[in-house]
Design a protein around this nucleic acid. Structure first.
Length: 476
RNA sequence: GGUCCCGUCGUCUAACGGUUAGGACACCAGGUUUUCAUCCUGGCAACAGGGGUUCGAUUCCCCUCGGGAUCACCA
């Protein structure tokens, strides 16, 4: 009996898609998938002045790279094509004509300046501005050269928002808004309703900034004889400090930035979904299948959330640690430092494996692994700044390292053998592990930190290990 | 200013009248024979305020305060 669920993501191609915007898309996608419905992409490009070059491609790429596949859209078509509003002008004209015929739309006789004068006057009188107070008695027939306005029917509304709950407003918020602009393009307020009806959208997911306009939409739905879809208005994701909506200048990266830095799509999905939604249990991280199974509209929070990149890092890291070595390698190998190019796959895979547990996102790979691929210059500060080593005489360190060289050179360079010999040396030298192992670690990596010593040496191999120890020795 | 929405640790949140207000991130301390990380243990930390309703309020109602959104020929 119920109509098949159809949700849509309907951005205007005016800029980059950041985390707040993609969350709306994610929820719409999850809901469609959960109900075996369709998810549709539609471009709302009726404001030619604000359109940005490349924004369409960016939007499409963002959805694709996050894995939010849509079933119908501008680039793939579908039964209700086109999915670009600027190509649907005739459709809007037809619907507008129905409104004109039924006496619910009329030509706006005023110039923008005149309307502004009404507005200023209302402001001066400290009264709210209502265009309908200036509604013309006998408007001339609309010829397309002036805006076409909706003739509203002011009344109170109470409706249910799937996220917010019941909302009530009085007739004072209902006004005659513009249906079609004098440039021939429809306004969002008009065409999204037409398109949602034509495309049989059952659930609207959008930002909370639209909730104030809902009463006017309800009024239009009535005039058109349409049943409004379910509406779900998402609270905003706020920038650090919570003072404003998240935007690019808050350091808010767009979705593709995160993909480029090596955040996993499945981690992004989990993190973004739990920004304002949870399943009521103490589960913190969700696979996408779990998200699809457990998502529910009524568990979306009502209040805005702050985007916290530290938490994203933790979520992403936990997904990275779940990856098999093969998968980790395949997905991260392009992030390896340039110096890795000449090394064979088996070697690189071992290196990636050692970095796995300390990786928060793939772009960190070069700084974490560069010493596996090139000899870094001996850095005296690593020793002089080390809290254990700086308390030991250089001469003593040198002797220690010399005996280490001897011990290590006898190793077969398996992790087990290295571990055994290193421990024997530790015992024989009577040194604290913090001194002996740090010394060898620094000598062989020239890095402030690294994976475990035996693991590192085993991967580095005999030749490189001994060469680096000798370089360090020469620097004393 | 009018209208609407929101208000639990620094952050993301759980709680659907009765709890020592729970979990997670971050942070701090300790442990896992070096560092960083992982993992484990412990710690710090919240019901915006005031009135009601009730035997009992974080939870229901009202007011105040605070935050956000919206009042376009933008979406």
């Amino acid at each position: 009996m119920n109509k098949p669920v159809r949700t849509r993501f309907a951005p205007s191609p005016t800029g980059l898609l950041h985390v707040g915007g993609i969350r709306t898309a994610l929820f719409a996608w999850l809901y469609a998938r959960q109900n075996n419905g369709q998810f549709i992409l539609r471009f709302e490009d009726t404001d030619k002045a604000r359109e940005k070059d490349g924004a369409r491609e960016h939007l499409i790429q963002s959805l694709r790279s996050l894995g939010l596949q849509y079933d119908e859209g501008p680039d793939i078509g579908g039964p209700h094509a086109p999915y670009i509003q600027s190509e649907r002008l005739e459709i809007y004209k037809q619907w507008a004509q129905r409104l004109i015929d039924s006496g619910r739309a009329y030509a706006d006789p005023y110039s923008p300046e005149e309307v502004q004068a009404f507005r200023d006057q209302a402001r001066a009188e400290k009264k709210p501005f209502l265009y309908r107070n200036h509604r013309p008695e006998n408007p001339k027939a609309w010829d397309g050269s002036t805006p076409l306005r909706f003739k509203s029917d002011p009344k109170a509304y109470t409706w249910n928002d799937a996220v917010i709950g019941d909302v009530s407003t009085g007739p004072e918020v209902i006004d005659d808004f513009i249906l079609i602009k004098s440039d021939g393009y429809p306004t969002y307020n008009f065409c999204h309703i037409v398109d949602d009806a034509e495309m049989e959208i059952t659930h609207i997911f959008r930002g909370q900034e639209f909730i104030a306009s809902v009463p006017n939409y309800l009024n239009l739905y009535e005039a058109l004889g349409l049943q409004p879809p379910v509406m779900a208005h998402m609270p905003h994701i706020m920038a650090e400090g919570g003072k404003r909506k998240l935007s690019k200048r808050d350091g808010a990266k767009d979705v593709l930035d995160y993909i480029r830095e090596g955040y996993l799509p499945e981690a992004l999905r989990s993190f973004i979904a739990t920004l304002g939604w949870n399943d009521g249990t103490e589960q913190e991280v969700f696979t996408t299948d779990e998200l699809i199974a457990k998502f529910s509209l009524n568990r979306i929070g009502k209040s805005g959330a702050l985007f916290d990149e530290r938490r994203l890092n933790w979520v992403n890291g936990s997904f990275i640690r779940e990856l098999s070595l093969d998968e980790l390698y395949e997905r991260s190998k392009s992030y390896l430092p340039k110096s890795a190019a000449s090394f064979d796959e088996a070697y690189k895979k071992q290196v990636v494996g050692l970095a796995q547990e300390r990786l928060k996102y793939f772009a960190e790979l070069p700084e974490l692994t560069d010493f596996f691929f090139e000899d870094l210059p001996v850095n005296p500060e690593l020793m002089s700044g080390h809290k254990q080593l700086k308390k030991t005489e250089p001469q003593e360190l040198k002797q220690l390292l010399e005996s280490a060289l001897e011990t290590i050179s006898e190793s077969s360079f398996t992790v087990d053998d290295l571990t055994t010999r290193l421990n024997q040396l530790l015992e024989a030298s009577g040194q604290k592990p913090a001194v002996l192992f740090s010394l060898i670690r620094i000598a062989t990596t020239q890095a402030p930190n690294s994976p475990g010593l035996a693991d590192t040496l085993a991967v580095l191999g005999r030749e490189t290990t001994l060469r680096r120890i000798k370089s360090q020795l020469a620097s004393f």
